[in-house]
Design a protein around this nucleic acid. Sequence first.
DNA 1: GTTCCGCATGAATCGATAG
DNA 2: ACTATCGATTCATGCGGAA
Lengths: 282, 282
Amino acid sequence: MRDITTKILLGDSKEVLKTLDDNSIDLIVTSPPYADRRKNTYGGIAPEKYVEWFLPISEQLFRVLKLTGTFILNIKEKADNGERNTYVLELILALKKQGWLWTEEFIWHKRNCYPGKWPNRFRDAWERMLQFNKTRDFNMYQETVMVPIGDWANGRLKNLSETDKIRDNSKSGSGFGKNISNWLRRSMVYPTNVLQFATVCNNKNHSAAFPEELPEWFIKLFTQANDWVLDPFLGSGTTSEVAQRMGRNSIGIEIMPEYVEMAKAKIVQKEPSLFTHNKIAV
Amino acid sequence: MRDITTKILLGDSKEVLKTLDDNSIDLIVTSPPYADRRKNTYGGIAPEKYVEWFLPISEQLFRVLKLTGTFILNIKEKADNGERNTYVLELILALKKQGWLWTEEFIWHKRNCYPGKWPNRFRDAWERMLQFNKTRDFNMYQETVMVPIGDWANGRLKNLSETDKIRDNSKSGSGFGKNISNWLRRSMVYPTNVLQFATVCNNKNHSAAFPEELPEWFIKLFTQANDWVLDPFLGSGTTSEVAQRMGRNSIGIEIMPEYVEMAKAKIVQKEPSLFTHNKIAV
DNA sequence: GTTCCGCATGAATCGATAG
DNA sequence: ACTATCGATTCATGCGGAA
């Protein structure tokens, strides 16, 4: 097995990205700073300037992504003056104009969302996970994210094994050659485009809470071992940490020095296991 | 208690709506035909013409809605040539331009979505429930849709899987004794903006796109008894039926005569109960 | 009377085939 | 080349008949 490289780079993504090679990244997964009217929060970009701020960055992302690669953008517009702001919608349209295909919109359903009560709205329990691609022929490893079949099966499919085995064999024509995947399919099904992960607030310092399951799910789905993962807004380093643990090379970019330190601390050389050896370049 | 009026009108919404009074409707809840490339399907409007088709209708909707009223639009863009079409995003922007406030986007999470497998995407398990208003001061009766604590999914309690219950229990801290009776003793909490309803699939009757729970939830949330509910794309009549059952006056408009007949059949005079008397105007 | 099981059916999507 | 049609794929749910 080859070494895994985990790079953590300090600087402005717009500039640092220019140092990366063309068509070198398999998956970009990131949660950029959301637009915010309050200027003094981390990365506070005004909503009306968000698209113009993002486009030069996404232009570089387009350049460094492989043709078979995928770009996952986690974003959600806040309520602003009683309304949802439309800058995310405008960003999607602008990215399409830039050449991206808007392949899918996953929903991240946050089981335990932020508490609160307002007279005119309920708690916001979901965020957009927008999928963009350069071509229609991107890599997708669907079997890696299969989930147990729903509860209805417990009550209804207790004795399904014999009849279903027979039916499946006869359908395929040849009576032999049933493989593991056929057996697996009895208990596992493909997921949908609604993901349910709990938010994890293990890190109060960082403004964007990214539960590990989220990048992990997309890394499983869109990359294989030794592929390259990029997070241009690394924050406290969740994406890098997960990528390293999963045996993917990764590059994380972060503009705030204190976050870079935090991320590096997570990526310290782990005890080499029997089959992997982690190399760290920071 | 006053009589409940249930009007079902045959015709093109764009024209029929002109016969309604200004500022007379408390809630518009509808599921218009989605854009579709296939021309000969019911209501097939090409995606690129969708906004221009919808705006004259929404102009009338704006006129007839009370200042305190709400407009709920159920819509979802299909995958088209490997991409999600952007006409819904463009519609939101156009409605804002028309004077609507885009107050909220609820997610309808369909637990039983359409099956299927494709190399580049998973099953689509959600639809948009877009909320628009004329002003920031609209009526909202949040207490009417409260759910038992722990039912974070907003759905019926039976939707909770066993694992979810267990996980939720363990998360709450104490090790033992967390059973149903404890749940029931707890107070009620407000739901979130993610709704979980199963789609209905009758093998006998004609299929309804809309499960009853969906209009019911919004009618509870945004109207009181004797208020007026409008569905400009009534279809087989689910909205009218639910509104009548809940003691709301309603107007449904539908262009296809066979659907109008179906809707009328659902609205036949019910046996008057002790406290209500239904009047039907068709 | 419960519980269990078969079956039909969904606002789906893609790729191949046909006009 | 571009569009219409068709077959294959797949899973949660309600209904109805059977055990």
